[in-house]
């Protein structure tokens, strides 16, 4: 257990010593969602209609950007090799890295989402729903993305291949997340959506770190 907390602490420290790694994906997120009103037009009712979808798609893309660098520095300086060879179970270390990754990529988006919701004239019910949806959905995205991040380690066009292999897997979260906000905006309940997002999260939490662990071993072997 202490290995888990130590990894979380170490990764967070590394992230905060290179703030650009954390801030650039957020800046990217903000720029992407600001482009939509410019392209579609500033009419509040149009923007409120697409708000959930735009915020979710931008969140998927910016999370992928940060996942792309998740294992890279550890891979390049040999830390990853030591983690695999070391005495601590690799699964715990992977889990720690995943938690730290979510804390610096998924959580800020969820926390800042009321702001983005207001930029898109989302109703207050909708804003509440999107915060909850992002809180439940982004960990799943990080868990799934890490598998791709591990598989594409050391490739020349890693970022591009990562997007191609991971984005199709993001479809269920995108559908549930936007449906949850739409349902809240139209005054319906969204407990069902939340339960489904939670179920997906638990499912991925159980299986994805194992897959990531295997993928890391494959990446090290070549």
């Amino acid at each position: 257990m202490s290995a888990l907390f130590a990894t979380v602490g170490r990764d967070l420290r590394l992230h905060f010593r290179r703030p650009a790694d954390v801030l650039n994906p957020l800046a990217f997120f903000l720029i992407v969602i600001s482009l939509f009103p410019l392209g579609i037009g500033p009419a509040p009712e149009t923007l409120a209609g697409i708000a959930a979808g735009v915020i979710w798609v931008a969140a998927l893309l910016s999370l992928l950007l940060s996942i792309d660098t998740m294992f890279r520095s550890d891979y390049e300086d040999g830390t990853l090799e030591q983690m695999i060879l070391g005495r601590q179970p690799l699964l715990l270390l992977v889990l720690g890295k995943l938690i730290a990754q979510w804390l610096v990529s998924g959580l800020p988006i969820a926390v800042l989402s009321p702001l983005f919701g207001m930029m898109f004239f989302l109703s207050s019910d909708g804003i509440k729903a999107i915060v909850l949806a992002l809180l439940l959905g982004t960990p799943t995205l990080v868990l799934l993305g890490a598998i791709g991040g591990a598989l594409t380690l050391g490739l020349r066009q890693a970022g591009l291949v990562l997007s191609i292999i991971v984005l199709p897997l993001y479809v269920p979260v995108l559908i549930l997340g936007t449906a949850m906000v739409d349902s809240a905006v139209s005054g319906l309940g969204y407990t069902g959506h939340m339960l489904w997002l939670g179920a997906l999260l638990l499912f991925c939490l159980a299986l994805a770190p194992v897959a990531t662990q295997f993928s890391l071993k494959i990446a090290i072997s070549h």
């Binding site: 598998i147 292999i165 897959a211 494959i218």
Partner: peptide, 25 residues
């Protein structure tokens, strides 16, 4: 995705294992 991953990797053994992993996921 499976095709892209395989063509991006150079080593045959690791490319095979990685694309097998992706296909299972």
């Amino acid at each position: 995705g499976v095709m892209a991953l395989r063509s991006a990797m150079s080593g045959r053994e690791s490319a095979g294992r990685a694309s097998a992993m992706l296909a299972i996921v």
